[in-house]
């Protein structure tokens, strides 16, 4: 590969595009969530700021920026400030390896619709998502608040018990595609069918594990409002709070994107060879469907108790994920993979 200035510009533009997609996506995911929740709860949801409430995220953002930022007197100040950053950066960079569409040609130059095609993309995702738990734990610890500490501890325990199942859920598509690169996995699905049809159990385990991973209801232990007021971000206010909030929603988008790529065929869809720009549209549509699922669960399910959650993770999800790997491997050996 020749690295010329055009290529560097391409990377910069793509990075900025992904960042904008994540942050704007975050803003409008909050609106999407509030609207969907409202409709499920026989009410209207935000409809004052702008037509149909479309400027609500802007208003929220402005409010949060102008809020006073408090740092508790006995908090560990450096860690207290760094913790939201540690949480939000991994969330922003996860999607760097996800392909957005097929290659397109602009002005004789082939442009890949992905930022990076690394051959261990799945490992990259696993490791990056694991980093954000440090942010949560450090936030809980540095706040010097009992609720926050309990939230941080819960978060650590929860991540450990769910990451194993999550990792094993990745193994299914990897085995089927024979590669860890997300491009190859999408290409493999283009040749056969979306992997959710071959890996229904794996897909379900993936979705359950990522709910725990992004701390969403019914697994929102670390920030359980009813018990721990707000869990690890009890003491945070203003933009620091907004960063945690942002991290949660961006991670929601990220795991939905990855889930769509692994199990729903990513950017694949009809008429792609005619109009390659449909790829991102398909991907966003699939992400919206998965996000809807996450919101739906939040609107309908009560929270599982912490110890039950751990038991569920270790005693149900982990063995099932192992079983899924064994079955997939056996199936590939017997009927031939790829």
């Amino acid at each position: 590969m020749v690295i010329d200035s055009a290529m560097i510009w391409e990377w910069v533009i793509k990075s900025v595009a992904i960042l904008i997609f994540c942050t704007a996506g975050f803003a409008y995911t909050t609106l999407y969530e509030r609207k969907v929740l409202a409709r499920m709860q026989v009410r209207w949801g935000p409809n004052r700021a702008g037509p149909r409430g479309i400027l609500q995220p802007v208003a929220d953002g402005i409010k949060l920026i102008f809020k006073e930022e408090l740092i508790p007197a006995k908090a560990d100040k450096l860690i207290f400030v760094i913790a939201p950053v540690i949480t939000v950066i991994p969330a922003l960079i996860i999607t760097g390896v996800v392909p957005w569409g097929p290659d397109i040609t602009i002005g004789g130059r082939t442009i890949h619709l992905y930022l990076a095609n690394i051959n261990v993309a799945v490992l990259y995702i696993m490791s990056i998502t694991s980093i954000s738990v440090y942010g949560i734990t450090l936030a809980g610890w540095s706040s010097n608040n009992k609720y926050a500490t309990l939230g941080g501890l819960r978060s650590t325990a929860q991540m450990i018990s769910y990451e194993l199942a999550l990792g094993l859920a990745f193994v299914g598509p990897i085995l089927l595609a024979g590669s860890m690169s997300l491009q190859d996995i999408v290409a493999a699905q283009a040749k056969s069918v979306p992997f959710i049809l071959l890996q229904p159990l794996g897909a379900v385990i993936y979705m359950i594990a990522v709910i725990a991973e992004v701390n969403r209801a019914p697994f929102d232990m670390p920030e359980a409002e009813q018990e721990l007021t707000a869990g690890y971000h009890t003491e945070y206010s203003g933009m620091k709070f907004a960063l945690f909030f942002m991290a949660e929603y961006i991670k929601m988008i990220a795991v939905s994107t990855i889930g769509a790529t692994l199990f729903l065929g990513g950017y694949l869809g009809p008429f792609l060879n005619v109009a390659p720009w449909l790829g991102p549209v398909y991907l966003i549509g699939k992400v919206a469907i998965l996000l809807y699922g996450l919101i739906w669960l939040r609107a309908t399910l009560p929270r599982i108790r912490y110890d039950r959650l751990m038991a569920f993770g270790w005693k149900v999800l982990f063995p099932l994920a192992l079983l899924n790997v064994v079955l997939t491997a056996a199936g590939i050996t017997l009927f031939g993979g790829k």
């Binding site: 709860q41 026989v42 019914p218 939040r298 309908t300 009560p302």
Partner: peptide, 13 residues
């Protein structure tokens, strides 16, 4: 139900 963590849906109904 809200105390159980169901996010306001049962309450509103």
């Amino acid at each position: 139900m809200n105390d159980l963590g169901a996010f306001f849906t049962p309450v509103l109904y």
